[in-house]
């Protein structure tokens, strides 16, 4: 959610590039709608994103059986740190020819790592827009 919250702060830059952004959830449609439309998760913590109603700017897609996730190699269906995880989060950038030009697996190793992740995605999108 932090990645999506950060990305919407860069909405203007994304639109200037004429790019589309999608967020894929290996979850049913109801969970995907809640993810897109309601800030139920971060609103429960104190933080920069806690007071906003919706944090997701990207087009949300429900991938209920995890098909796309498996195709892109991000499915895990496993416990991690004691919690059930369907997907290991990943960013993918695709250029105007339909070729994958960038893949990033966020590390979440610092409290603000998402800022650098989103900056890297924007850089990759800029390059992809030129190709």
């Amino acid at each position: 959610m932090h990645q999506q919250a950060q990305l919407r702060l860069k909405k203007d830059e994304v639109e200037k590039l004429g790019a589309d952004v999608y967020v894929v959830l290996a979850m049913d449609l109801h969970r995907t709608r809640v993810f897109k439309e309601e800030n139920r998760l971060l609103s429960t913590f104190k933080g920069p994103f806690s007071r906003e109603k919706s944090l997701v700017y990207a087009t949300a897609l429900s991938d209920p059986a995890g098909y796309a996730s498996a195709l892109y190699g991000v499915a895990r269906k496993c416990l991690r740190w004691g919690a059930w995880v369907e997907n290991q989060p990943h960013w993918i950038v695709i250029d105007r020819k339909g070729t994958i030009t960038f893949m990033l697996e966020p590390r979440f190793d610092t409290p603000t790592a998402y800022e650098k992740d989103v900056d890297q995605v924007l850089e990759a999108l800029k390059k992809a827009a030129l190709r």
Binding site: D20, V21, Y22, F35, Q88, W91, I92, V93, A124
Partner: peptide, 20 residues
């Protein structure tokens, strides 16, 4: 269907975990 937008514009896809 992703192929309906592929090859037309640059695209970013984020595969999310619910809290990621």
């Amino acid at each position: 269907k992703l192929s309906t937008v592929l090859g037309k514009k640059p695209i970013a896809i984020y595969f999310a975990a619910y809290d990621g």
